[in-house]
Design a protein around this nucleic acid. Structure first.
Length: 867
RNA sequence: GCGCGGGUGGUGGAACGGGUAGACACACCGGACUUAAAAUCCGGAACCUUCGGGUGUACGGGUUCGAUUCCCGUCCCGCGCACCA
């Protein structure tokens, strides 16, 4: 064994060994329990970033841990390879998106291998490969025929200069990112998945996912947004008969119906169009509403504007005429595209009524308020006032009664709605999976027959603004599969979320050429542990759950949910540094090029650029990003310290769910620990071979060390398996190593215990830092191999104690400590506490009123005059 | 704007079901070794203090024998918002 820790030698050696032995290749094996450990696959952006290192290390720790626990572990890897960045790179560098993507995949695969992940590479997939996307097209055609996919108009961001559709990301402050033109809303036909048909199941299913974080389930519940309410019809004429036209709205607050003072409709609403046809001012306002992006955050924060259409609708109960406004915050295709406004009891309506001088009618009062004034808007439920026959009823009761009366009048009924909208998957982009539809002038939209799949995406293209597919008639022109007449292929591609909605299942079926999935999918699914960023809490995770149910209903899988347990990791952040430039912009400097200065207490006081020694401004900690130039390249880290240091640092610096702050010094610390570990093993084996302790009478010191060892084994297992908190597991191992260092005896028993501790430490750390542990295990136990090694066992007898220390509190404040026998009863503990010398001092002559004994923890003596 | 999280020493964080606040590590300070430096090893430390103790987990309140932990309110930061992935 080398006296020095040399990661640059032992890491490639270990990786080569694992590769040659195909140590992590797995197949279905019913003799062992299966464990499918999956990390969200990367987008091949060019090179690995620290977020990837964190994500894949967490996955690898779990995969390796469960392997040591005797599970048949599947850990696959692949590439989410379609998407916008490839098109951007193509435009910027004049390369085809395909070759850019494949080159990135090759480079990043090498980086992943250098991390030493226990991955079964024989299952690797890339979503841009026809072998993959053909099955997505196949499923699309089946779902289209089933009616799960349908076509309708939808609103997109339109760049009027570049004549292209823009992604929300490409709209900056309401302008196109390249042209700078004010973005407009435009309606185009798109294909939609009927995810709303599954809303109820997607909602209910969350109750059967105990392995998901509560906050992710809450976010999904709110996103689906089930609400119970009433559809109310407002007649368009003062005299209404069944079948006459009405304005339909949905409300969750039917109890406020008598407080309606106006109506608001979307700019695209038929009533608005109708009114605008003979009102130029209104037409201009509607045109103005068409400006701006479609992103909900933009719509919600923009100034609320409206204009009276001059039209009136009539209150279903009072027949009172109500003005109809066009408002820019009401969205078509969102509910009915119209709402009833109750300014007294809704925040947005209140602001709007104030702005346009519309009446505010209070119809709900708090139960306890009496006659006094209330502050508006009053949003809580309460008691109805000024509400005709319903006055005096409570809100909930009134909602029921109002719905009933509306139903009898034929002017509405109870309805359950969802906030969730159908999933539009058409993208007017090139680098994506072609939508397998042929448009025939006679037959309409015809799905591409199975024998003609896949619809291949041409890869050898030149990119300009807009999709090249739309300029390739030789590609889009084709015969209609039904009538044989001349037809056109759909040139839109699918949302890349479609590919990432089923890759986890395809990993189970590598090489399958005759279908999307086979029986192997049911062997491995559901995924036992899914790991990825919290930013995917809603969209990706909801789409994947939905897709799983679609595949289930097609008979492709037999489970209901794809991911049994979910771990959402936090972001990787780093300090930012900049200098102000003359033009008012900032020059962002990479942390690797900056040196910080600290005062005598260790507080940062200044920072300087290494290159010129001149000061720079410290900009605060932010998510690693290109724009702030605060990304730290994991490759540099791995080259300098090795993969194990990179892995140990990312696992130790923060618990997985919190954000992780990059720290050069923290990396050094992790590296130092590995060097100390290496040295401890080296010095131990230098003094000759010894077997691990297996029994005999030990000194108190050695007993205590063994107790700590077995406590640590129990804690590390619990931290990894139940708590998924690796930082505390590593801290416990560090404490154990510190205790071992303090133990200096070298008599036979001591050396045997030392051997036991070191063997166990190496195995406990193996999931986190596998390369060094492989080398150290071989040194400690020649001939032993980490692949196939078992997780250490807890020796219960080593945990026993004779005496324990308890805390003594007086009135909730810590005043002393005392020792009692480990098996002392409550009364004995109380007696010991009352006899302790600290108590008398702190009682200060006051009588003891109460004694609280918390077994194994503390005794709290409550003293003082009875008040 | 709406939804969801978070806020603890100089720093990252620990405290697992309401029971010792600050484990472990980084940074800092001191010491040993060295001609010197680096590396390594050992030690110190939340803050204030009249050395009795007092104060401390963003801020203000509440529940409790006891609150970082539970409840209410406020402020700040982060994530998501349906075409970034």
């Amino acid at each position: 064994m080398d006296a020095q820790y040399r990661p640059e030698i032992i890491e490639p050696e270990a990786q080569q060994h694992w590769q040659e032995r195909q140590a992590y290749r797995v197949s279905e094996d019913d003799s062992k329990p299966k464990y499918y450990c999956l990390s969200m696959f990367p987008y091949p952006s060019g090179k690995l970033h620290m977020g990837h290192v964190r994500n894949y290390t967490i996955g690898d720790v779990l995969a390796r841990y469960y392997r040591m626990r005797g599970y048949n572990v599947l850990q696959p890897m692949g590439w989410d390879a379609f998407g916008l960045p490839a098109e951007n790179a193509a435009l910027a560098n004049n390369v085809a998106p395909a070759s850019w993507t494949y080159a990135n995949i090759d480079y990043m695969r090498g980086q992943l291998k250098r991390l030493g992940l226990a991955i079964d590479w024989s299952r690797e997939l890339a979503t841009c490969s026809p072998d993959y996307y053909r099955w997505e097209q196949w499923l699309f055609t089946r779902l289209f025929e089933k009616g799960v996919i349908y076509k309708k108009m939808a609103t997109v961001n339109w760049d009027p200069v570049d004549h292209t559709v823009l992604a929300n990301e490409q709209v900056i402050d309401g302008r196109g990112w390249r042209s700078g033109a004010l973005v407009e809303k435009r309606d185009i036909p798109m294909y939609f998945f009927r995810i709303t048909d599954y809303a109820e199941e997607l909602l209910g299913g969350l109750d059967h996912l105990p392995g998901w974080p509560e906050r992710v389930k809450t976010m999904q519940r709110n996103w689906i947004g089930k609400s119970y309410g009433v559809e109310v019809h407002f007649p368009l004429g003062p005299v209404h008969q069944a079948g006459d036209p009405v304005l339909k709205v949905f409300t969750t607050r039917a109890d406020t119906l008598f407080g309606v003072t106006f109506m608001a409709v979307a700019a695209e609403h038929p009533l608005a169009r109708q009114a605008a046809s003979h009102n130029a001012e209104l037409a201009a306002f509607i045109a103005e509403c068409k400006q701006g992006s479609t992103a909900e955050a933009d719509l919600a924060t923009m100034e609320k504007k409206g204009m009276d259409t001059g039209l009136k609708v009539y209150h279903p109960f009072t027949n009172e005429p109500l003005p109809v406004f066009v408002a820019n915050y009401v969205l078509m295709g969102y509910g009915e595209g119209a709402l009833m406004a109750v300014p007294a009891h809704d925040e947005r309506d209140f602001a709007f009524a104030r702005k346009y001088g519309l009446p505010i009618q209070v119809v709900i009062r708090p139960e306890e308020a009496g006659e006094g004034p209330i502050s508006l808007p009053f949003l809580e439920p309460g008691i109805l006032v000024d509400s005709g026959d319903f006055t005096g009823r409570g809100s909930a009761d009134a909602q029921d009664k109002i719905a009933l009366v509306l139903k009898n009048l034929g002017l509405g009924e109870r309805r359950t709605t969802y906030r969730l909208r159908d999933w539009g998957i058409s993208r007017q982009r090139y680098w994506g999976c072609p939508i397998p539809i042929i448009h025939c002038p006679t037959c309409g939209d015809v799905p591409v027959p199975e024998r003609d799949l896949p619809v291949l995406l041409p890869e050898d293209v030149r990119l300009e603004v807009g999709s090249p597919l739309k300029r390739m008639p030789e590609w889009s022109r084709c015969p209609c599969p039904k009538c044989g007449g001349e037809a056109q292929r759909e040139t839109d591609t699918m949302d890349t979320f479609v590919e990432s909605s089923w890759y986890y299942a395809r990993y189970a079926c590598p090489g399958l050429e005759t279908g999307m999935l086979d029986g192997r999918a049911n062997h491995w699914l559901p995924v036992d542990q899914y790991i990825g960023g919290i930013e995917h809490a809603i969209l990706h995770l909801l789409y994947a759950r939905f897709f799983h149910k679609l595949m289930r209903d097609e008979g492709l899988v037999d489970s209901d949910e794809p991911f049994a347990n979910l771990l959402t990791q936090g972001m990787v952040v780093a300090e930012t540094y900049y200098r102000d430039l003359r033009d008012g912009k900032k020059l962002w400097l990479n942390p690797a090029d900056v040196e910080v200065e600290r005062d005598a207490r260790g507080q940062t006081v200044a920072a300087r650029l290494l290159a010129d020694g001149q000061p720079v401004v410290i900009g605060g900690v932010e998510k690693m990003s290109k724009s702030k130039n605060n990304g730290v390249d994991p490759q540099t880290l791995i080259d300098r310290y090795g993969a194990d240091t990179a892995r140990l640092f990312t696992m130790f610096a923060a618990p997985p769910e919190l954000s992780l702050e990059w720290s050069d010094a923290g990396v050094e610390g992790a590296h130092r620990f590995l060097k100390r570990l290496w040295k401890a093993v080296y010095e131990h084996v230098q003094t000759g071979r010894v077997s691990a302790f297996s029994g005999g009478e030990l000194s108190d010191e050695l007993k205590a060390l063994r107790r700590q060892l077995h406590q640590t084994i129990a804690k590390v297992g619990d931290d990894i398996e139940r708590r998924k908190q690796f930082n505390t597991a590593i801290a416990a191992i560090m404490e154990l190593m510190n205790a071992l260092t303090r133990m200096e005896s070298d008599e036979a028993h001591a050396r045997a215990v030392k051997q036991e501790v070191l063997e166990a430490v190496v195995l406990l750390l193996a999931p986190m830092v596998p390369h060094i542990c492989r080398a150290l295990l071989k040194a400690l136990r020649p001939g032993a191999c980490l692949v196939g090694a078992d997780w250490p066992r807890v020796d219960e007898s080593a945990l026993a104690r004779d005496e324990i220390e308890l805390m003594l509190q007086v009135n909730g404040r810590l005043r002393g400590k005392f020792r009692v026998a480990a098996d002392a009863g409550k009364e004995a503990v109380e007696r010991a506490a009352l006899a302790s010398p600290e108590l008398k001092r702190h009682l200060d002559g006051k009588p003891v009123r109460k004694v609280v004994v918390v077994p194994g923890r503390l005794v709290n003596v409550v003293a003082g005059d009875t008040a």
